[in-house]
Design a protein around this nucleic acid. Structure first.
Lengths: 209, 209
DNA sequence: TGTACATCAGTGAACGCGCGTTCACTGATGTAC
DNA sequence: TGTACATCAGTGAACGCGCGTTCACTGATGTAC
């Protein structure tokens, strides 16, 4: 669409882009619809032709985030042809943590419960479910649940570990530069320990273990 | 201090208590100083006799949170006299996750980066450092870092795992009732897998591992 | 014990601000004939 | 191809609201003598 037209042409997308940018800059909570509109170069009222309200814009951004995360998880483990299952999971973990590191504001939004009435946003719900399903598939393809282990305990452990690492990293709780190189290195270290199991580092202690 | 006095007696503490309550009810971002004051039964201007500004009140709540977390981590692993190292770590993990589950709003605040200029709040910084040091001690007492393992990789792995689980739980990403019983059960499952190591569940895959 | 006075810790009104949303409007676009 | 007209997608002004913070004030407290 040529510049200077009265009608924007693709304002919906422009608004989502502006919102996403502002979410990265100021955090998901401190972004006003007016600022989003301004960032897209339109008046404050313009977004209402494309979204019900402010929350719907934020939900659209979160939806986009889950779709991207799903894509990156799906592409990640194909890096090495002759990789073993742990290696493939490690690659997926690196993709997860690097996604968070690349989009910390977006990542916070996605897991913030800011959109608590999720049922109002079926696209968001579906995109989130797809991302979590992808995690389940990755674990299921590479690990086997032995009899006696609780269902989903493997998925939950792997997910918790990379999710926790991602959160601690982007919240600046680790004394580490937040480059993707460092994020990948930390993820490799952590998933290596997770692979071996804490058991193998166990100290006898005062009365056995 | 008797009721009905003009002077409150311990307004500072009452304000922190009110703030904490509201943070649980509405989340850390949506709590206004006016609402906090109202909750403490005083006028909007009263808090300024005890705090520099709104952020300082929030920082005081976060500081309290880190102190409580430290206490609960320190007390947790003494439950069983004849426990092994993994059992003690598991107990600490349960304490961590249950703390989050008991105080989801507070927990979010503590890790939210909402108080980004942390150097402005030395008490907060110190309380947070003490909590993290406690985690380090717990791991150090129970696990031994073998030569070749990156420094702190054990702490980081254990921390990431329980932190991630706590976050996923309180953000409602797990289809689970958020009782402490369920929180403890999940933590036991997850730390059990973490203890054994994902390696032991590994699937051969198309070309070995 | 009584009194004068400084200080402490509240009050309530007011400030300017940015917010989400609504509204009547109007220019641009697209379609029927 | 030209024209009439419906619809689409913007504008800009305005609404009421809650916010953080400041201010002059005043009642309560505590201390010196």
């Amino acid at each position: 669409v040529s510049k200077g037209t009265y009608h924007h042409g693709d304002l919906r997308r422009a608004i989502v882009r502006s919102a996403r940018k502002l979410i990265e800059e100021r955090g998901p909570h401190d972004v006003s619809l007016r600022a989003i509109a301004k960032g897209a170069g339109v008046s404050s009222a313009a977004p209402y032709h494309h979204f019900d309200d402010r929350t719907a814009v934020i939900a659209a951004v979160a939806t986009e985030g889950f779709r991207e995360l799903t894509d990156r998880l799906g592409l990640a483990p194909t890096g090495l042809q002759d990789a073993g299952p742990l290696q493939r999971l490690q690659d997926a973990g690196i993709a997860y943590v690097c996604f968070a590191n690349d989009n910390p504001g977006l990542f916070r939004l996605m897991f913030s419960g800011l959109l608590s009435e999720r049922s109002r946003y079926p696209d968001l719900q579906e995109a989130a479910a797809a991302a979590f399903a992808m995690l389940g598939e990755l674990v299921g393809e590479n690990l086997a649940r032995p009899p006696g282990e609780a269902t989903d305990a493997l998925v939950l452990t792997a997910w918790s570990t990379v999710h926790g690492l991602a959160v601690l990293l982007i919240e600046g709780r680790l004394d580490v530069r937040q480059t993707n190189e460092d994020a990948a290195r930390l993820t490799r270290e952590v998933t290596r320990v997770l692979g071996r199991g804490l058991r193998s580092y166990s100290r006898p202690g005062r009365d056995g273990g």
